[in-house]
Design a protein around this nucleic acid. Sequence first.
RNA 1: GGGCUCAUAGCUCAGUUGGAUAGAGCAACGGAUUUCUAAUCCGUAGGUCGUAGGUUCGAAUCCUACUGGGCCUGCCA
Length: 659
Amino acid sequence: MQILKAIRERFRDVLQKLLDDPAMVESSLERIVASRDPSLADYQANIAMPLQKVLGKPPLQIAQGVVDNLELSDICESVSVAGAGYINLRLSPGWLSEQLEQAYRDGRLAVTLVDAPKTYIIDYSSPNVAKPMHVGHIRSTVIGDAIAKVLRFLGHKVITDNHLGDWGTQFGMIIYGYKNFCDKEAYKTHPVAELSRLYRKVQSISGYQEAVAQTPKLEQAIEFAKRRVEQLQAKLAAAPADKKIAKELAAAERGVVSSEEELQSNHEKIAQSQKDALLVAESTAHPAIYEKVLAQTAALHRGDLENLKLWNEFLPNCREEIDIIYHRLNVEFDHWYGESFYHDMLGAVVENLFAKNLAVQSDGAVCVFLDGFDAPMIVQKQDGAYLYATTDVATAMFRDREFSPDVSLYVVDHRQGEHFKKLFAVLNKIGLGHTDFRHISFGTVMGTDGKPFKTRSGSTVGLESMLDEAVARAMEVVCNPDRLTGVGIQMEDQEKLHIAETVGLGAIKYADLAHNRTSDYVFDMDKMVRLDGNTSAYIQYSFARIRSILRKAEEKGMEQSKWQVAELRLSEASELALALHLVRFEEMLHQSMQDYTPNLITEYLYELAKHFSSFYDQCSVLNAPSQDEAFSRLKLSSIVAQNLKIGLELLGIGVVERM
RNA sequence: GGGCUCAUAGCUCAGUUGGAUAGAGCAACGGAUUUCUAAUCCGUAGGUCGUAGGUUCGAAUCCUACUGGGCCUGCCA
């Protein structure tokens, strides 16, 4: 049940008689919203004020006129005019309990399926295989998975596709590593571990060589920047009032600092590498390793038989490694069409762009120039190689043939915003305009220092170790023996492990989803696993408490079969607040999918848990004044539990019976 | 140079698309407990919504300029 929709329909009848312009009716209807201040109203219509000029009457009079003709008595207990002309609506308890009865009986909380389901294709996660997954992959994976689940729940057809990076330079690294450093025995027994070792080895040699090569360049850059600072200082001394110069100077000074920091970390990296005698020796034996890696990659792309054979051999092993993570995160995909899948189509894509007069040769590369952009979209390099833009075009064309999506979502970080703008422009020009392409961008995960999240030594944080840490912390806090005996729970190690895993992973997913997706957020493990405040554990805890009550009720002879037919009686303020929140579930889900913002869902669940806690504090369930009230509260509690469970599941987060 | 984006309480963040007195959590302070799991509940304090203009019944939200961050910007993805 979407309350807002129902209320708007009632207003529509009245407004259509009042206003001639249908567009004005619609815009007025959009001004009917849930109230921000629950002490004033449950819903409010802010329609009278903008109409005063149109109708030439004072807002209060308009509002009163609308109210007099409204037919809302079945839904609302009061409809009143207040303030500058606000129409305030208060829902009636009887109507609320009717809605909750339906939700209780339904199994999916009476959330209706959409009238006109759309076909969505959602591209998310999309890591590079063979490289270890790191913290940067968490947002796309978690946000994309939540969006997919919610859209499905609402009745849309959703196709998820993990667009793996399985054709890039990282395979050149592994192939080169395999040909030069492979421990054949280890590869036979533990191929995944050995390949991962080879990747890291080539990566670290390459990184070391890169750092050495960068040093003089950085030193030069610093010299240059310092000279620039001096020049600007002189200029500024001559013209102290010139703001532009002052600004340039400040920028130049920052440039010096950041280059110096970079040089410093470069030195540290070199020093670190040089501690490893083997690494230094191997680096000497394999100079300019990165070029050799690129050569192996190019050979693979040319169809070199040996490299292709190795690639085919390696890929399943690399897949296995990331499958472990997905399995643990409980994330699944319908398709895994990686970059390699499109390799054979790229030539045709470029030809097609030529045929449509979109592509032109420029400086030896094939480019598509677009209005409103300085730089073109390059689809083929001077050396003939294709780029990710080419693959993206091929992918969209393939998906169009295969799935005919109405909407195509790309859950990718905000730095690729311009790339997607260009891509979508090209897709429109080649005749895919019937699909609504959207870049679901998100911000960067920052460390507590306000810089992109890295380890102390500056490397990216591996996803797996991050998950392990969250689980370990959840174990410490939730399953600590003192606490468990304190609340009178005994459990086997297996249950503890299950709880720690559910709570720990939930904490990470929840923290990610709880932030507005477009903004950067600070990753603070201490906070997200702290288990009080706005965290998944607080919500999971509310669920466990309800389950505990329901178990105790059964022990006392109040089985579900008895209270499930009981009447819901909403009398206490905390009961009404809880009920009002519960009936807004469907409305909230639609709202959160309007701009694909899962944080509305976390907010809803947190508020629901808080409302339950207040209710729990003020209204005893098992020791209610009468059996009727006990039964009613058991029923209400079980609806809350159901809602918490479904809500968390839509976010990919689990619940436990006790914690 | 051009473009995108951000700036809200000490800290971390919301802010329902322009609505009534700007909200949470954490931290601080004060209360509640022989607990249906205190990982709780109730309350207090904390703000020139970066600055200055503009648009209108009404602006944290829209427009312009400015200040300060971040990101992108022809052959990585």
